[in-house]
């Protein structure tokens, strides 16, 4: 059964310290504050000596459902440790493919309202191209491979969503 909020898989704060863990991957059922996350990620004391670029992306819950109805809420279900592990695998592959030094990936689960941030991906690297490419890669993989089941709630009911053709073609770029 998907964990409820009280069982959220959120790492203790010490694991978030970029010095101790430069690759910080988390799930949270609490609202995500991208500004606070980015402030922490960008602190001079958090930076590695080689950091010359930070690229970031924030995904926001849209107000329109796939069927054109107004979205009431988006519900993201996870499964125990599998969801976090799938996110960690994506970030680990990004580390192998791109010359990056740090990353922060925070993903919401549970019930998300239109306008709320769903995901933050921030990547630091010596040079901008690696940071931008790795951020783009992580997002494309999250959109199709991460272990989430997503359903849209509208006034007409609830509907499960699967990756779109665009999501698959975005992933195929890599």
């Amino acid at each position: 059964m998907p964990p409820r909020c009280g069982q959220a898989i959120v790492r203790p704060f010490s694991r978030r310290c970029p010095v101790a863990d430069p690759f910080d991957v988390r799930l949270s059922c609490e609202p995500l504050d991208p500004i606070a996350e980015m402030a922490r990620f960008s602190l001079p004391s958090s930076q590695g000596a080689e950091d010359g670029a930070i690229a970031s992306f924030v995904g926001i819950c849209r107000g329109g459902a796939h069927d054109g109805e107004r979205l009431v809420a988006l519900v993201l279900e996870i499964y125990r440790g599998m969801t976090l592990r799938s996110m960690e695998e994506i970030v680990a592959t990004a580390r192998e493919r791109f010359a990056i030094g740090r990353a922060c990936v925070v993903h919401r689960h549970g019930r998300i309202l239109p306008g709320e941030p769903i995901v933050l991906v921030a990547v630091a690297a010596a040079h901008r191209r690696a940071a931008i490419s790795a951020m783009d890669y992580i997002m494309d993989r999250l959109k199709s491979d991460a272990v989430f089941w997503k359903r849209e709630e509208t006034a007409l009911g609830s509907r499960w969503i699967e990756p779109t053709d665009t999501d698959y073609s975005d992933k195929a770029r890599w």
Binding site: D145, V147, K150, W160
Partner: peptide, 10 residues
């Protein structure tokens, strides 16, 4: 055990 339908992605 658990059974997974195709994942939706994030």
């Amino acid at each position: 055990p658990a059974f997974f339908p195709p994942v939706s992605g994030g």
